[in-house]
Design a protein around this nucleic acid. Structure first.
Length: 497
RNA sequence: GGUCCUGUGGCCGAGUGGCUAGGCAGAGCUCUGCAAAAGCUCCUACAGCGGUUCGAAUCCGCUCGGGACCUCCA
């Protein structure tokens, strides 16, 4: 089997993945800022890295997956007034900051559950790691790479850049950063424009505040990830993931901080997912085109023609390679919805298919070989930087084979018993365990199914008596409820929701 | 302004030198009481212009278009 290769943003090329500690993987993914509701954009990284987590686990690694919750609130420097996103919203909504943070954290967890993502091994909060962050800042000051001004602490980028490659990850040229003509206000404390805050002194109205060696304040917006990643994954760990938009300055600064503090580059493989766009534009607050996940699932948004099931969205995201932009649209989502249904129905039928205990050889050698080839491609494409799009394409080429077996169009022994068994195993592995896809029809309980079987029998009886009024009545009324009856080739009948 | 990415058939998207992914939509056929489902077949694209090459969607140059980051952002 081929080896897993991943695209490393740091080196700008695909590299064979080798973990630092054999058998173990440390993976950190930048989590959400819970100052507001999660939106469609959040779905991409957490689903992408969920699949990576599942895949690494499948490969036999013991993975420690750390994904933080940013609940401390980052300061914004719009114009001159520094303010905390979370504390500002809290005033507007008349909530305690932690109450607000809890609300959106819960909502985030709910959405992630809808997407069937596996919870991370550790989900640390920024507010729970103030001590660690302060400790790290002290280390950086001691090393001479940070300075204090009026109760705030800034990282000295110029000094760091003199001996380190600041900008390596994001392709930034340090001189451009230092000599940019653009002037922002409220930065007079910094020695240099490129410097970034490690600790900010809190104004009196700032609700989220902690005591520190430099006075009352709050942590800068890059330090939390460095502190928590170091604490739970060590000075050097395998994978750091996040959205491409975080590459600069967030991840670049993370590297700088951690490198000074731990005397080593923190991350072996930096992985960045691309953005979701809407009509070609990145989704973001500044574009006013944000679709919240609750709106996506309910269809309650002007852009949406209908509600989309979380599994449809998950499948939609996996239909493209994670480093490409993904353009959102109703037509594309509806295509994904139908495609997912066809794939899942074929998979579910095959999963229940009984091969019997007697082994047999393939009657149709070329079809058998083709199937084996397509199955082998699952691993091959997955190892090529998680090309889930190609894996799905191979699966879809197998769907007509499965449906052929189902309607007897393809002989039961066309494929060898071993091939069918392998297909069952691999499809289950990839669809359910690695891709985390579930059937959309959630009401398929035993009792519901039993009721459906009664209706199916009634329709079959009516049909055999050529009582088409009754048989059509059953079919059409069920259709109105969104339940589709399907007559099959061999006289059987099934339904789908 | 600086740095970088990108332009594929009606829509979404794979694809880094030759063997013309895949999904959805559309057309025809088979099956069927009708319909749906399913199967088979068809629709064979790569922004434009040059260049390199036996051969380019794929490499190089230019033009035009789109986008990202540089500021909170997944």
């Amino acid at each position: 089997m081929s080896q897993l290769k991943v695209y490393n943003s740091l080196t700008r090329q695909k590299e064979v993945f080798e973990s630092i500690t054999p058998g173990h993987v440390g993976m950190y993914v930048c989590g959400p800022t819970v100052s507001g509701e999660s939106h469609l954009g959040h779905a991409r990284p957490y689903i992408t890295f969920d699949v990576l987590y599942r895949y690494l686990t499948h490969l036999g690694y013991k993975v420690r997956y750390v994904r933080n919750i940013t609940d401390a609130g980052h300061f914004e420097e719009e114009g001159r007034e520094a303010e905390d996103k979370i504390s500002k919203k809290a005033v507007l909504e008349k909530l305690e900051p932690m109450e607000l943070v809890q609300k959106y954290t819960n909502l985030f967890h709910w959405a992630m559950d809808q997407f069937n993502t596996v919870p991370p091994s550790i989900e640390p909060t920024a507010t729970g790691h103030i001590v660690e962050q302060i400790g790290m800042i002290q280390e950086i000051i001691k090393a001479g790479y940070a300075y204090e001004v009026n109760g705030s602490v800034y990282f000295d980028v110029k000094k760091y850049a003199a001996s380190h490659d600041y900008g390596k990850l994001s392709g930034r040229v340090i001189d451009d950063l230092l000599e940019t003509t653009r002037e922002l206000e409220g930065q007079e404390e910094k020695r240099d424009r490129a410097d970034f805050a490690l600790w900010k002194s809190a104004a009196p109205e700032h609700i989220m505040r902690w005591q520190s060696p430099w006075g009352v304040g709050f942590p800068g917006w890059h330090i939390e990830c460095s502190a928590m990643a170091t604490k739970y994954l060590g000075a050097q760990f395998d994978i750091h993931g996040g959205g491409m938009d975080l590459q600069f300055p967030h991840h670049e600064s993370e590297i700088a901080q951690s490198t000074i503090c731990n005397h080593t580059a923190p991350v072996r493989y930096w992985m960045h997912n691309n953005m979701i766009t809407i009509n070609g534009k990145k989704m973001g607050k500044s574009y006013n085109n944000v679709i919240k996940l609750t709106e996506l699932f309910s269809g309650d948004h002007p852009i949406l023609e209908k509600a989309y099931h979380p599994m449809t969205v998950r499948f939609f995201i996996l239909q493209t390679q994670y480093r490409s932009t993904l353009d959102f649209g109703n037509e594309a989502l509806q295509a994904a919805e139908k495609g997912l249904k066809r794939l899942m129905e074929a998979h579910e039928w095959l999963a229940k298919y009984e091969i019997g205990s007697t082994k047999y050889e393939a009657k149709d050698k070329s079809l058998d070989e083709k199937a084996l080839q397509l199955i082998a491609e699952f691993d091959e494409f997955m190892n090529d930087d998680l090309n889930t799009a190609k894996v799905l394409a191979s699966m879809f080429e197998l769907v007509p084979v499965i449906n052929g077996l189902k309607d007897k169009h393809i002989a039961a022994d066309a494929l060898s018993s071993n091939t069918i068994q392998l297909l069952q195993t691999k499809l289950k592995l990839y669809i359910e365990d690695i891709f985390g896809l579930k059937s959309i029809s959630g009401e398929d309980s035993g009792r519901f199914n039993a009721v459906m079987q009664i209706l199916i029998e009634l329709r079959k009886d009516a049909k055999s008596k050529k009582d088409f009024v009754t048989s059509d009545k059953i079919r059409n009324q069920l259709a109105e409820l969104g339940i589709q009856l399907k007559d099959e080739k061999d006289g059987g009948m099934s339904y789908s929701l």
